[in-house]
Amino acid sequence: MRELVIAASLLALPMPVQAQMSEAEIREEAAELTMRVEKLEGARAIKNLQRAFAYYVDRGLWRQAADLFADDGTFEMGMDGVYVGRERIEEYLRRLHGGQEGLIYGQLNEWVTLQPAIVVADDALSATARWRDLGMLGQYHEHAEWRDGIYENTYVREGGVWKIQSLHLYVNFEVAYAEGWARLGEGEGLQRSQTSVDFPPDSPPTAEYVSFPQPNIPTFQAPHPVTGRPVR
């Protein structure tokens, strides 16, 4: 009996790992760890990708901004409808900002992009993210605006490189700096841009838009992080 107890306690002693894991087990865990590292790397890459987009648009680098999209990537902002593919996205962005390369003297165009909630798929080949948009826009001696919005975007990894698959900016309001959002009336927070009228999108808006002062909750792609349930 005593020998049995001693033998059992010996078994309980931590053994060096080499002695316990078979070659196959090591391979299996290594493969699993690879996926975990790839998901972490993916989240990092997507942060850089989306932030690079904002830094390019801020300065009027339309081509560089569009080059962040996948071949069939889509861009949808406010009520303007969906533009498909890098060329269309580039031209839409250019026209939306006056039609020229870069910004002009006195043009303010800060697309501050914050608060990422990134969910990378388990295979680390696609992802979704929600971001907050805070726009500081205007033209010196003419106008200045604040913009508030939410992005719900998707990303894809092609040939090891993360790209934007779809960018969808739900604009909550765009309002004159001097008036401020609290004075907005019904329907004043968001209008279809003249650019979208003159240079029509490839397909109509994918959502029904309501803008501030009406409450407006862009659909969540990601499930609730604690309960795991879809959010409606």
Binding site: A52, Q64, L68, E101, G102, Y105, G106, Y140, W162
Partner: peptide
Amino acid sequence: SFPSNYIPPFSYPHPVTGEVIEVVQP
């Protein structure tokens, strides 16, 4: 600074194309 449209140079290459961004300053 504003109203000038100066572009602070980019330290990083384009994340998808790898292009080093050349900027045209005002």
